[in-house]
């Protein structure tokens, strides 16, 4: 057993980093597929047919594991770091410059993201994939899923919450991206600013794409 991923700080960070990058991969795919919503019901239904393939079903527990590992490690590391800081805080505050505001608030950002993930899962996943696990009697199938999304996103409260969520996630991703590479050791003086910029651009593309879907339905487009 490679126990260092449990009992060494850098090993634990490796897990944080790899699980984070894995979630990045998922998010990218998820974003790409959902952009087909903008192509109307038939385009989206075609994509959703893919989503009901067995390959995707196999990926569900792996993805869930990715989230669970990332979150459990996050909380574990946070708790260790909280203790390492010592009992007494600084009366004059912490005014040190850091690489970003997000860097100091990764756990809070992550927890807010998690809150929304729960909401998101109950709104969609619980009505679609979960039902197929349970036998499929109440499942919202591929051909009805476009309407499900459209109905939810036309509700201004839901859509505004979603858009807030994307931009909270944006903060998490801007630090997360370069931090993950720094943790694996693929970073140096030359690449640090580059990775930081790539991270911001990447996170912005994801957030803008997701946001555009909500705005599309919110402003009455779509069938």
């Amino acid at each position: 057993m490679k126990l260092f991923i449990i009992n060494s700080s850098i090993g634990r960070k490796l897990i944080m980093s790899l699980s984070g990058l894995f979630l990045f991969l998922f998010l990218t795919l998820h974003c790409f597929l959902n952009m087909f919503l903008l192509g109307g019901p038939s385009a989206y239904t075609a994509v959703n047919d893919i989503m009901e393939l067995p390959v995707v079903t196999i990926m569900v527990p792996i993805l869930a594991a990715g989230f669970v590992i990332h979150i459990l490690y996050a909380l574990w590391l946070y708790w260790q770091n909280y203790r390492a800081r010592g009992e007494v805080g600084y009366a004059s505050g912490k005014k040190s410059e850091t690489t970003s505001w997000a860097a100091r608030n990764m756990v809070i950002l992550g927890l807010v993201v998690l809150l929304f993930i729960v909401l998101h899962l109950t709104q969609f996943w619980a009505k679609m994939q979960l039902q197929s696990f349970l036998g499929g009697a109440n499942q919202v199938h591929a051909d009805q899923s476009y309407d499900l999304v459209a109905n939810q996103f036309r509700n201004p409260i839901v859509s505004v919450l979603y858009i807030i969520w994307y931009w909270v996630l944006w903060f998490h991703l801007t630090h997360g991206f370069w931090s993950a590479f720094q943790t694996i050791g693929i970073d140096n003086k030359k690449w640090q600013p580059r990775l930081q910029i790539i991270g911001i651009v990447y996170a912005t593309i994801l957030a803008v794409c997701f946001t555009s879907i909500n705005l599309y339905f919110l402003f009455g487009f779509g069938a």
Partner: peptide, 18 residues
């Protein structure tokens, strides 16, 4: 050195750059 650092109760780096 990392093992000693961990043993002595220092925290896990999150690359804040402070």
């Amino acid at each position: 050195m990392v093992a000693k650092m961990d043993e002595l109760g220092f925290g896990n780096c999150t690359n804040t750059g402070a």
